[in-house]
């Protein structure tokens, strides 16, 4: 009996492997392979114009101790994430709560808010670059109409990161909103009915029913948004090219800059691995704390 099940299991496993093989082959060839190769490259001094030479841990030593721009870049990336995540999640949840009601036109609003998600990020960033252009930009022209002189949005070291954050939130908020909407519609109505009978206020209901019930979705969106925010690149290269100065240098832009502008591929790989570990550590930390605040999970 047991041998039979084991054999059947093995055969079933076989089918499984067969089914996932296209995906796995792609993953191994185009993702795992390059990642391992990049890891090896991070211990070399390699520019496209010359062959690679092994330098041991030099790249990592340089990066930690002798490259102020690297730390500036890490700081900028964290600034971007810290600005983007709360804004994105709160806005997405508020929109989801608003559009979860049966009001005329909700379908239209849902579509409108989701449309940017399926728009090309490059197109999106170019349009906003023109909106935030210094004098002839749409925003500053509108401000000028009211007699105000708008600032040089993308040429002000203090303003440029908030501008990029807002543009990124507007692009991505629709995705999280849809996830929240789905979660909200899954919350059984009877809990609210019971709470209403007990005389709980709307706010109390939101705190004690809605939030705990959609906690898994909040957790999911948090991780996705966090990882996405650490990988920010397209809007930076289109809107600011890391500037003005180095005020929007973020990790992926810095990696691109090192690898494809100055051809310091070995060093760029080392920075890429720091990013890899940063994402890994942050995700693990969140995963660990998940038990504390995600109570309701199927």
């Amino acid at each position: 009996m047991t041998t039979y099940t084991a054999r059947a299991n093995r055969r079933n496993n076989w089918y499984g492997y067969l089914f996932i093989s296209p995906m796995m082959l792609g993953f191994l060839c185009f993702l795992a392979g390059p990642i391992i190769y990049a890891f090896a490259l991070s211990f070399t001094d390699y520019s496209l114009l010359h062959p690679a030479s092994f330098v041991g841990l030099d790249n990592y030593v340089q990066l930690v101790g002798k490259d102020p721009l690297f730390w500036k870049t890490v700081g900028n990336t964290l600034y971007f994430s810290a600005g983007l995540i709360p804004l994105n999640l709160i806005l997405a949840l508020s929109l989801a709560l608003l559009l979860n009601q049966k009001l005329p036109g909700t379908g239209l609003f849902r579509t409108a808010i989701f449309t940017p998600v399926v728009t090309s990020i490059v197109v999106w960033a170019i349009v906003w670059k023109y909106v935030f252009a210094t004098d002839a930009g749409l925003l500053n022209q509108i401000l000028g109409y009211f007699g105000m002189q708008g600032p040089a949005w993308l040429y002000d070291t203090a303003l440029v990161m908030p501008v990029v954050i807002v543009v990124s939130v507007l692009k991505k908020v629709g995705m999280n909103m849809v996830i929240f909407l789905a979660a909200l519609q899954d919350v059984p109505k009877m809990y609210y009915e019971a709470a209403t009978i007990d005389g709980a206020s709307k706010w109390r209901q939101f705190q004690s029913i809605t939030l705990p019930m959609i906690a898994p979705s909040i957790f999911l969106t948090l991780i996705i948004t966090l990882i996405g925010s650490l990988k920010v690149f397209s809007q930076i290269i289109v809107m600011t090219e890391g500037g003005p100065g180095t005020s929007t240098y973020v990790l992926v832009y810095y990696i691109y800059q090192l690898a494809y502008k100055v051809f310091d591929i070995g060093y760029a790989s080392a920075v890429a691995f720091v990013l890899f570990f940063l994402v890994l550590v942050l995700t693990l930390v969140q995963w660990k704390f998940r038990k504390r605040w995600v109570h309701h999970e199927q």
């Binding site: 252009a133 210094t134 004098d135 040089a152």
Partner: peptide, 14 residues
């Protein structure tokens, strides 16, 4: 002179 980041072009007559 236009300020940094300005995109006004000559064709606009500005």
């Amino acid at each position: 002179h236009p300020k940094p980041g300005d995109q006004t072009t000559f064709e606009t007559g500005k």
